[in-house]
Design a protein around this nucleic acid. Structure first.
Length: 853
RNA sequence: GGGCCUGUGGCGGAAUGGUAGACGCUGCAGACUUAAAAUCUGUUGUCCGUAUGGACGUGCCGGUUCGAGCCCGGCCAGGCCCA
């Protein structure tokens, strides 16, 4: 009789035992080596979603595995608690953002705890609490002192629906990343962080992040966008002005056939104002999108200023245009156009009938089709006087040094990266600790007045920033002169909070400092950081770049020693699900669709037919969502954890299926019953039958394989190996003491190895087979390589590369022996009839290939 | 337009250049049951064959190799990032 596994009661029992014993609390006072595992902390939206479950399950496997491996593991959790949804909730329901946020945190904390994560909850914090953001205000003032923070008037991306400024990164295809509304351009006084000062370090130290996905490093590198080029001046004929251009292709200078200015270039107005069609041209430029991609796709149009510039090397004259595809933000806002070697210039020159002169000739002249398109590839310089015959690289250097000699220009490095605008016209964020005084200007709030906390009595009735609308909060006296002054009502971008939270976990209660320097140095040492960081790839540029910059800025201000926050990074895939639509084409929830007896999908209530759509990322709008709480309620946390790790490699998208979660649930019940029913005995190691040796080989092979798979983040392979192992030892029938030993070893090892994946089941089984200790203090299983190697091996025999037979050879068989045995094989002889042996290939333990003809 | 990634049964996916399809899901057959569910056993790439067996098979075309899903070159399709 097998006992049924009471999942809910058992899982709750173990979670209580872990909590009562503070099982996952850690400190830096330990003899063991440290290991810091961190998942991107959640925004407290109110409900845990399946993406969270995947994220925290992956982290928990690593944390529990590293703990068993003998590391001092820190695995903390907190809340990225500032942000717009709380304010939107306040507007919609009249609930205060703080109340909404803390209620959400409370319910999500319970949901996360129900997953059985090995988290040190004593380190928990929420970024919306003054105990957290007070330190941001101190750091900001320090940044200000060191020139890392500054204020300037600038054109900003204005989201007309959210009524707020967006960072460049928050603008996608010219639209707000949250609202999708077309972004407008406005001029405002804004606070900035000088991330551009760190562009070179952020780029060059990417090389050292060798435990980061290549893809993320490439994305950051592209985002920083370093280019080395030439900046130099052209004389304008008939004017005493000069136009300064920037180019990344100085080698193509002899192919220049026009100059193009950005529409908002100061000189554009000077040269063209009042001319026929100029106003219309500018208007049409403003009508088009502001993003680089939009500009790229728009038709290339220009306005001829009528002025000409003198080519500095050729001496002849080329026209100066104003063109819609030149960006004022990049370089000098002016370029020289080389139609033969730049596609945009090519399109422009074709339209305005300008010369197209090739100056780079590819090895294969057929590749050069400059009547159809620009040539961008490699080649040798031509039509370029002293550059003729040079490579592109040499020609670039030659042009730069020529310009530097003549004093007309200089080689320079440009970055695409812009400074980080951190001001937001929002209530639910960290207040910027600045006071504006008519006489003294922008005055930092003195240390003793910190923290500046958010006023609790705010109204969301009016449009705009509630802090600005507040009757009294902003009215203060100037800290310097005492005159009536005005408080800064902007708050920090919420990426500010997530840029340094990895440090705060090291010392979450510190009132005086963001983090104690020694504690930070223990968990995030100079040459390392968080050992394993896990989260979605959507943060590849924004959060991960800001956090890297912030770490370096904090280092330079003396707060920490670290150079990089995250030494290991893993980016998980999305969770997807089938979509369902009813007869009217409306999305319906998976729980409302059911397969009827005829095998057709119908609505569970109405019985109307349901169409199955694409398998896409879970989203509320498409209703293809699964509630993790319901899943854990029905199947238990271990089943959810097992399924989410089973099928897909963690970096790929995972399709959530009912059959998948049910399969995981079945396995848990099956394993519980089978192992509980075993009558395990200690057995005797001294005299092992071949069967027992075979069992032990599987056990030790599995330890090796599972360990490697977990280290490699191949959790799906680890699960597969464990299932194979389970199938192996449950079909093993012990007949003597040696067999008993092998079986007992297998079961113990199995339980230890499923612990990171299914910790509740593991603890329960561990207790059931008679252990008194918790698995938390049980070391990981180790394997004996000598038990893995077998004395004989079955390998394939190929004839001309096709498998014809298999033979069993002693592991140490030599070529001669392999040949004898292989050629004696009946099937081999049959295949060789009438043919000659040309070559005999034997790769020990791998294969035999016989070449005949 | 450029860069990176991916392409394997009905499905998710395994496979240091060495027996392709591990492991799971689904399906099918059987056992148990009055019956169903659950559970257990077997089976499940395609084609030919009663069978022993054989042929084909990792998006397409070529190359390297005794041997290619894997390496190289060129296409095609999908995805991501940058333009």
């Amino acid at each position: 009789m097998s006992e049924r596994y009471n999942i809910k009661a058992t899982e709750a029992k173990w979670r209580k035992i872990w909590a009562d014993n503070d099982s996952f609390a850690v400190s830096e006072n330990s003899d063991k080596p440290k290991y810091y595992v961190l998942e991107m902390f959640p925004y407290p939206s109110g409900r845990v979603h399946v993406g969270h479950v995947r994220n925290y399950t992956l982290g928990d496997v690593v944390a529990r595995y590293k703990n068993a491996q003998g590391f001092n593991v820190m695995h903390p959790m907190g809340w990225d608690a500032f942000g717009l949804p709380a304010e939107n909730a306040a507007i919609e329901r009249g609930e205060h953002p703080a109340k909404w946020t803390h209620e959400n945190i409370a319910s999500m904390r319970e949901q996360l705890k129900a997953m059985g994560l090995s988290i040190d909850w004593s380190r928990e914090f929420a970024t919306c609490d003054p105990e957290y953001y007070a330190h941001e205000q101190r750091m900001f003032l320090k940044f200000l002192e060191r020139g890392i923070a500054y204020r300037k008037e600038s054109v900003v991306n204005w989201d007309p629906i959210d009524n707020t400024v967006l960072a460049n990164e928050q603008v996608i295809d010219g639209c707000g990343w949250r609202t999708g509304a077309p972004v407008e351009r406005r001029k405002l006084n804004q606070w900035f962080l000088k991330i551009t000062d760190y562009a070179e370090e952020l780029l060059s130290s990417l090389d050292r992040l060798d435990k980061w996905p290549e893809k993320v490093r490439t994305m950051q590198s592209n985002w920083i966008g370093k280019s080395v080029g030439l900046q130099f001046k052209w004389d304008i004929i008939g004017s005493d002005g000069q136009v300064e251009v920037y180019t990344t292709r100085p080698d193509t200078l002899f192919g220049a056939s026009f100059i193009a200015l950005a529409p908002d270039h100061p000189m554009a107005k000077t040269l063209a104002d009042g001319k026929d069609g100029y106003d219309e041209f500018i208007a049409s430029c403003q009508a088009q999108g502001t993003s680089e991609a939009a500009i790229e796709q728009a038709e290339k149009i220009g306005f001829d200023t009528g002025f000409k510039a003198t080519h500095p090397l050729l001496g002849h004259e080329i026209p100066i245009y104003i063109a819609n595809f030149i960006l004022m933000d990049y370089g000098t806002g002016a370029v020289f156009g080389v139609p033969a070697h730049d596609q945009r210039d090519f399109e422009f020159a074709t339209k305005y009938d300008l010369p197209i002169m090739p100056v780079v000739i590819p090895d294969n002249k057929d590749d050069l089709n400059i009547d159809k398109q620009a040539y961008l590839g490699d080649g040798v310089l031509a039509n370029s006087q002293f550059l003729d015959g040079m490579s592109i690289k040499d020609a670039k250097a030659a042009v730069i040094s020529k310009c530097e000699e003549s004093g007309t220009g200089f080689g320079t490095t440009q970055y695409r990266l812009r400074d980080w605008g951190i001001s937001r016209q929002r209530y639910w964020g960290c207040p910027i600790p600045i006071i504006y005084c008519e006489d003294c200007g922008a005055v930092p709030v003195p240390e003793e007045q910190l923290p500046i906390t958010l006023p609790k009595d705010v109204s969301f009735d009016k449009a705009g920033n509630p802090l600005d609308n507040h009757p009294t909060w902003k009215n203060v006296s100037c800290p310097t002169c005492g005159k009536a002054a005005r408080r800064e009502t902007d708050t920090f971008d919420t990426f500010f909070e997530s840029s340094w939270y990895q440090f705060r976990y090291c010392d979450p209660k510190n009132e005086n400092l963001p983090v104690d320097k020694d504690k930070a140095a223990y968990w995030l040492p100079k040459d390392g950081g968080v050992d394993q960081y896990i989260g979605g790839v959507e943060h590849a540029v924004l959060h991960l770049l800001y956090a890297r910059f912030f770490t370096k800025a904090m280092r330079d201000c003396g707060f920490v020693e670290s150079n990089e926050p995250f030494s290991g990074l893993f980016t998980q895939g999305m969770v997807t699900h089938e979509t369902y639509k009813d007869e009217n084409g409306k999305w319906i929830f998976p729980t409302d669709a059911i397969k009827n007896e005829a095998g057709d999908w119908v609505h569970i209530e109405t019985g109307a037919s349901v169409t199955i759509g694409a398998i896409i990322k879970m989203s509320k709008s498409k209703k293809n969502v699964i509630d993790p709480e319901e899943i854990m309620d029905k199947y238990g946390a271990d089943a959810a954890r097992l399924f989410i790790l089973s099928d897909s490699p963690p970096e790929r998208d995972l399709e959530w299926t009912e059959s998948g979660i049910e399969g995981a649930w079945r396995f848990i019940n099956k394993a519980y019953a089978a192992i509980t029913a075993l009558d395990l005995q200690k057995g005797d190691e001294s005299n092992l039958s071949d069967n027992a040796k075979h069992m032990r080989r599987l056990t030790h092979k599995t330890i090796k394989g599972v360990s490697a798979a977990i280290e490699d983040f191949a959790m799906n392979k680890a699960v597969a190996l464990l299932r194979e192992f389970y199938n192996g030892f449950t079909s093993f029938k012990p007949v003597d003491d040696g067999d008993q030993f092998a079986l007992s070893e297998a079961v113990n090892v199995f339980i230890i190895m499923i612990n990171p994946i299914m910790p509740h089941l593991a603890e329960e089984l561990w207790a059931n087979i008679g252990h008194k200790n918790s698995l938390i203090n049980e070391p990981w299983a180790s394997y004996d390589e000598s038990l893995i190697v077998s004395d004989s091996v079955t390998i394939a025999v190929q004839i001309n590369g096709k498998v014809r037979a298999t033979i069993t050879l002693p592991t140490n068989a030599d070529q001669k022996m392999a040949q004898e045995i292989a050629l004696a094989e009946e099937k081999v002889q049959k295949a060789m009839e009438g043919k000659n042996l040309r070559k005999f290939i034997y790769v020990p333990k791998r294969i035999v290939n016989i070449v005949i003809g």
